[in-house]
Design a binder for these strands. Sequence first.
DNA 1: GAATAGATCCGC
DNA 2: CGGATCTATTCA
Length: 167
Amino acid sequence: MKKLSQSFYEQSTLEVAKNLIGKVLVFDNKKAVITETEAYFGDDPASHGANGMTARNYPMFGPAGNTYVYFIYGMYYCLNFTTEKVGFPAAVLIRGIKMIDTGEHFDGPGKLCRALNITKKQNNIQTFKSKELYIADEGIKLKCKKKTRIGITKNIHKKWRFVGIEC
DNA sequence: GAATAGATCCGC
DNA sequence: CGGATCTATTCA
């Protein structure tokens, strides 16, 4: 099992989002294949980073390969991985996973974090250094489809969602 | 300090 | 569609 190094996350956000499909998310001894991601970066009005840094979105401006966990609608956490350079706001939202052990499938960023028990404690972790939370390449190959993003009201026509299709 | 909108999910 | 009810922004 190959843990992804920081250089993987330093590519363009769209590349990272696409390449994360089929990778394995490891958290607290649980392993899950990433099946769906979305890209948020730069001055995209749908991105949290579009209007500058705040106490909540600062990990997006930090170095690539960190987690960015935010709390939304008073009930749900969402897990992201930061990409690109320091000072440039960019992250990939994890929207769907499949547990390797149980085969359970979780769709939706809120449900996924609830299932994995991810909270603010997991915010801004350096995944390429962490033993608790990181992404590995297990050589799984999935077909990848481009689609429009979900749950946003701005910039809705950009096909920045990536969905893995099992072969 | 109040009002509002948001990368969500669930139940009616 | 509305409720749950946190966070950041805007307005007064």
